[in-house]
Amino acid sequence: MPHPNNTLLRIREGRDGDVPIVLGMFDSAVAWLTARGRTGQWGTNPFTGNDRRTRQITGWLRLGGMRIAELDDHPAGCIVVGGAHDYVAPATEPELYIQALVTDRRYHGQGVGRALLDWAVAEAAERGVGLLRVDCYAGDDGRLVTYYESCGFTRTAPFTVGEWPGMLLHRRL
């Protein structure tokens, strides 16, 4: 798919070898957030070397919902779709749930996250479901919630996991 900055953006299925790549994407996001004093979302520690995070990302790959966005054949972002997390209210209709979204900060501002969200919308439509949901960190200044709203999502309900403030959002197709 052509991309605004004349690079080629391609979204492919996750495959063997992607777990360390996705861990690295999260590491770059954590470092970027930490440098800006925004440590509430994912903390300050890299995901690489964290057994729990490695198992989580390996599970996403094995369940088949992982997609990798590549810009000019370089991994730039990852989205994972599947069932809703157990800490949010279940949907009352068939849905597709965005379990994770991360972009490598080297590709910040290049539309990778939006392209992955557009892929999720198309995937939900292809599966014949009219509801796409996502949750995100709602602390600090709420910029992440605002980002999802700018991508067509609507706030559904706030929630907390321990002390972590979250927002559940939805998008109707």
Rank of each mutant, 00 (worst) to 15 (best):
N6Y: 05
N6P: 01
T7W: 13
L8H: 10
R10Q: 15
R12W: 09
R12N: 10
R12E: 12
E13I: 01
E13A: 14
R15M: 06
G17P: 08
D18P: 03
D18Y: 08
V19G: 08
P20N: 07
V22C: 05
V22Q: 02
V22M: 08
L23D: 10
L23P: 04
G24P: 06
G24I: 06
G24F: 04
M25L: 13
S28C: 04
V30G: 07
L33F: 11
T34F: 02
R36D: 10
G37F: 11
G37C: 10
Q41E: 15
P46S: 10
G49I: 11
N50K: 09
R53P: 03
T54D: 08
T54M: 07
R55H: 11
Q56A: 01
I57Q: 09
G59R: 14
W60T: 05
W60F: 15
G65R: 07
R67I: 05
I68W: 10
L71R: 06
D72Y: 02
H74I: 10
P75K: 06
A76S: 13
G77S: 05
V80I: 15
V80D: 14
G83N: 14
A84N: 09
Y87G: 00
Y87I: 04
A89Y: 04
A89D: 15
T92L: 06
P94C: 08
E95D: 12
L96T: 13
L96F: 01
Y97C: 01
Q99M: 10
Q99F: 01
L101I: 13
L101R: 01
T103Q: 02
R106C: 01
R106T: 06
Y107H: 15
Y107L: 00
G109I: 02
G109S: 04
R114N: 07
A115Y: 01
A115L: 03
L117D: 04
A120F: 00
A122Q: 14
A122G: 12
A122E: 15
E123M: 02
E123R: 11
A125E: 15
E126Y: 01
V129G: 04
V129C: 03
L131E: 07
D135T: 09
C136K: 08
C136A: 06
Y137V: 08
A138N: 10
D140V: 03
G142N: 11
L144E: 15
Y147A: 10
Y148F: 14
E149F: 01
C151D: 12
C151T: 12
F153M: 14
T154H: 13
R155Q: 12
A157D: 15
V161W: 13
W164K: 05
P165Q: 12
G166V: 06
L169W: 10
R171Y: 05
R172L: 11
